[in-house]
């Protein structure tokens, strides 16, 4: 067995790099459902509340809040606004909408804003539906997740419905028991296949998705 001492020591030393460090960013998310005058769903406003460490990294990057009082001037707010709206072509915005499990066509972000409260950056943006949907005809679900799980989203905030008095939104958190068991399995597989999980983390994000469901009285 001693023959293996060298490779084993090598692996043992890999330990600190290997402990899968995901997720790195935590974002509380809420959705506002936007209806038109015919009570058809026209779009959603997404509100992201970033964790304080990521918020600090961003304000430092941009040279904001240099008195560290947790407040931004209006000039600084202007500078902050849109920092997370410069989406790559393939980026789906980490919010996916489904009508009877058919993916909805959501626009790129519009009407964005940013604020800074108690050390947390809060941003909002609107995504319009390419085709309006009658929520009474179909089951509408929005799933919030980053496929790579670099960011962990949680739909723990309040979700609002604007312009449809007999509709309400209901959030359902992911099942941690299932999700973490799944994650462990994927990590086992990846490491058995000789993958460096920190560089190529398995795409487990979807199983960590919280859901927001729109429910309307018929």
């Amino acid at each position: 067995m001693r023959m293996f001492a060298f490779p084993l020591a090598a692996l043992l030393a890999l330990f600190p790099a290997q402990s899968g460090a995901h997720p790195h960013i935590f974002v509380d998310t809420s959705i506002q459902f936007l209806f038109d005058s015919d009570e058809q769903l026209a779009g959603v406003r997404i509100i992201w509340i970033y964790d304080e460490l990521y918020s600090l990294l961003i304000t430092e990057d941009l040279g904001l809040d240099q008195d560290f009082d947790g407040q931004l001037t209006s000039d600084e707010v202007e500078k902050l606004s849109g920092f997370d709206m410069n989406w790559d072509e393939g980026f789906a915005g980490d919010v996916r909408g489904f009508s009877n499990e058919q993916a909805l066509d959501l626009s790129r972000p519009v009407e964005w804003s940013a604020t800074f409260e108690e050390g947390k950056i809060i941003t909002t943006h609107v995504r319009a539906l390419a085709e309006r949907v009658d929520p009474r005809d179909t089951e509408l679900v929005f799933r919030i997740y980053d496929p790579t799980f670099y960011t962990a989203y949680s739909a723990t905030e309040i979700h609002l419905v604007e312009g449809a008095p007999d509709c309400f939104a209901e959030a359902k958190r992911f099942d941690p028991e299932i999700a973490y068991a799944y994650l462990e399995d994927r990590l086992d597989e990846a490491e058995a296949a000789g993958m460096d999980v920190e560089m190529n983390f398995p795409a487990v994000g979807a199983i960590f998705a919280d859901e927001v469901r729109l429910i309307c009285a018929p």
Binding site: A9, L12, P16, D188
Partner: peptide
């Protein structure tokens, strides 16, 4: 403590060697 397998390697090494 989070997900990852390094700990098992340390353990395995410590038991085997």
């Amino acid at each position: 403590v989070g997900p990852g397998h390094g700990k098992m390697l340390v353990g395995g090494y410590g038991v085997a060697e």
